[in-house]
Amino acid sequence: MVRFENVGMRYGLGSEVLRNISFELKPGSFHFLTGPSGAGKSSLMKLLYLAHRPSRGIITMFGQDLTMVSRDELPALRRRIGVVFQDFRLLDHLSAIDNVMLPLRIAGGDPKIIREHAEELLSWVGLADRLEARPPTLSGGEKQRLAIARAVIGKPDLLLADEPTGNVDPEMANRLLHLFVELNKLGTTTLVATHDMGLVSRVGAPQLRLFQGELVHLDRASAVGAGQPDAGY
């Protein structure tokens, strides 16, 4: 599904914020991306959701070498990826329901069916009574849930969530995580970046651990930090 080989990344002409990143996400797998603040989690996510090009190395996604993919082909790839941004990136001028419908409207589906689907999803994340609310009028947690609903509506092959439970109480965090796990069971390859080690231990999925721009270890056995140098925590 996703394969990184010796990937590096930098912003503009700055020094590399990611170095020598190599890993693989198998189809249908569930991983956490952990690491202290500033380690490069969001930057790695940007490479994955195709908002940034690596400064070196090879990224293979959906069986395609990204260096060989032209700009015209990116939208088709991006439609297979669902993203929960750390800063949500909701469109403030659109209602909650329109925000959730956005990915499918862009892809050009039947608005009626999309709307039914979006309503269902919004009630699932507890926003059934806020369908017409605009994002600026929502609480942090509500925005987060809205962002998650938008990310999953297209039943993406790859789901990338950057701190998706940072603004909600533990109960809602569990509920949202459960949504990710359910989607994962249906085949969505999932990567969740988080600070919340409690969350990581509850799911017991393997983690990719970043420290100062490098991957510390690739723990397939899912033992959270067991016996590993647990930098930053």
């Binding site: 959701y49 908002a51 990116l74 939208p75 088709a76 991006r78 990136r89 469109l91 892809a107 938008r150």
Partner: peptide, 15 residues
């Protein structure tokens, strides 16, 4: 920023 978001969600330049 909105344009960037739309792109990431899969919007084409044409849209």
């Amino acid at each position: 920023e909105t344009i960037e978001t739309l792109h990431i969600i899969g919007a084409r330049d044409n849209l």
